[in-house]
């Protein structure tokens, strides 16, 4: 489905994840964060930028991997995105939901 967010038309899947990363802008990310009830701080953006880079490098994301990233530890990751951090953060980042069990 398509939606207009912050003046941009973006494509989303049925779970609300963007299907075309080239449509992502920081404004779109901000709006998606508001919908997820996340108040974005510079720390949040650092994590989002890291996730986007991992996605571009085609790295499979997992909680374990994020804990070893050196960007954020697992405890802080849960503090930044309290409910379902990996799902919430990837949604804001405009990248697919990771198919990870760990």
């Amino acid at each position: 489905m398509e939606r207009t967010i912050a003046g941009n038309t973006i494509s989303l899947n049925e779970e609300g994840y963007m299907t075309n990363f080239s449509q992502w802008t920081e404004e779109v990310g901000k709006e998606l964060a508001t919908e997820a009830e996340i108040n974005m701080t510079p720390r949040h953006w650092e994590v989002i930028k890291y996730l986007q880079k991992e996605h571009q490098d085609q790295v499979a994301l997992s909680i374990r991997r994020i804990g070893k990233s050196g960007v954020v530890d697992i405890k802080e990751f849960y503090q930044l995105f309290p409910l379902a951090p990996l799902k919430t953060a990837t949604k804001i980042a405009g990248i697919p939901k990771p198919a990870s069990c760990i």
Partner: peptide, 17 residues
């Protein structure tokens, strides 16, 4: 498959709440 060992898994669990 990126499965942590038991000690690391315990650390992940406690860090995750």
């Amino acid at each position: 498959i990126d499965m942590p060992d038991i000690l690391e898994f315990l650390e992940i669990l406690t860090a995750s709440g």
